[in-house]
Amino acid sequence: MPTSTPSDAQKAMYRLIGPDASPDHPPRPENPLAPLKVGNRALSPEHVIELLTPFMSDSRLQGIRNVVAGRTRTVVPVIEGIVNTGNVSAVMRSTEAMGYQDLHVIATDGRYKHSERTAKGAQRWLDVHQWEDSVSCVEHLQDRGYRVAAMYLDDKAVPIESVDFTTPTALVFGNERDGVSESLRAAADLSCVIPMSGFTESFNISVAAAIGLYHARRHRIERQGHHADLSEAEQTRLVARLCMRSVTKAESVLKRVLREQGETS
């Protein structure tokens, strides 16, 4: 039986989500003190940064440090069933630009539509987690202490202004046509909406995400004086990981440097 080949839209979506976002490897709580694997070696984040520093400009490394200093994992955006690659790209850009480190993508059945809008490389700096079903994603986030707030209108929906984003919160945005699925609505902890004054009853998903994430960021700054909240150890580990993403063929470079220094890899 002939096998079907991925469409251009599928390929574009897979490039966005990335190989590290396989549903076979769901995200786990990251230990900020855990070493990073390079070949057979386990290197401390500090050692990775030290070894890769000669392969980056001072401005590049400082830029990574500055961006990481502005990151949070307390608020996590989740997009469910989005089929348009342009909308996924737009949400990624908003997520990364406003200092959120994680993005959870609940995949559809694969019938994607391609758009020329791009993520402008935002996916390179995010931790993108892919899920094949909504309930597993919600349960995982709840197990990690997140309250799951789904963006949709029902009798119990509250204005987004009443949601406290200083506590761990996963903010869910549904797809372009149907919004948040029934299964996710049932599993979520609450529903919330962006108040609207016109005849139009909904925003485009990329606009809704941008507004929602901007509101959460502003709320956090107003309530607690800051948006970013990674510990020093968490920042160091993320800097090391982003250095590995910044240097071309970083793992090969690290293995070569370790050999040159007499350390096996």
Rank of each mutant, 00 (worst) to 15 (best):
A21Y: 00
A150T: 07
S94K: 05
P195A: 00
K255Q: 14
V67F: 11
N175G: 02
E234H: 09
S59Q: 13
Y214P: 00
Q142C: 01
S94V: 05
V257D: 01
I64V: 11
E46H: 13
L190S: 10
P168L: 00
S136G: 11
I64A: 09
T167R: 12
R256G: 07
L258E: 02
D154I: 04
M56Q: 09
A90F: 04
L254K: 13
A186W: 00
I106L: 09
R147A: 01
N31V: 12
S134L: 07
V75E: 05
G99I: 08
P26Y: 01
T3S: 07
R223L: 12
P26K: 03
S94Y: 01
S136E: 15
V257F: 03
D24L: 14
N87G: 13
R60S: 05
S191V: 00
C137W: 08
H226E: 10
R111K: 15
M244G: 09
F165S: 08
E132N: 15
T248F: 04
A228D: 09
A216V: 07
L254E: 05
G212Q: 05
Q142N: 03
V253S: 05
V78Y: 04
L103H: 04
I221Q: 11
S44V: 10
E260H: 10
L141N: 02
R185Y: 08
N175K: 04
H47Q: 15
Q62W: 01
P19A: 07
L153D: 14
H140P: 03
N66D: 12
W131C: 08
R124I: 05
E251G: 06
V78W: 06
Y214W: 15
D164E: 04
W125I: 01
F199L: 12
R237E: 01
V68R: 10
P27W: 06
L43P: 07
G63R: 05
V48N: 08
V78C: 06
R185C: 15
Q142I: 00
R117F: 06
L43N: 03
A122F: 08
K37G: 07
Y112N: 12
Q142Y: 06
S7V: 08
Y100G: 08
D178W: 02
S22P: 01
S57T: 15
P45G: 05
A107D: 03
N40C: 05
D189R: 06
S136A: 15
I82Y: 09
R65S: 10
R15L: 12
V67I: 14
I64M: 08
S115A: 14
D189A: 05
P26Q: 03
R217A: 11
G179L: 03
V78L: 04
S183F: 10
V76W: 13
N84A: 14
H227M: 11
D189I: 03
P77G: 06
A186K: 07
P2T: 03
L242R: 12
S22K: 01
L36T: 07
K249M: 00
H129G: 08
P168H: 01
A150Q: 12
R241M: 07
V128K: 13
L230E: 04
G121S: 09
E132G: 13
T108C: 15
Q130R: 11
S252C: 02
P35S: 12
D8A: 15
V91A: 06
A90C: 02
E251V: 13
V163M: 04
L52V: 02
S231Y: 03
I64D: 09
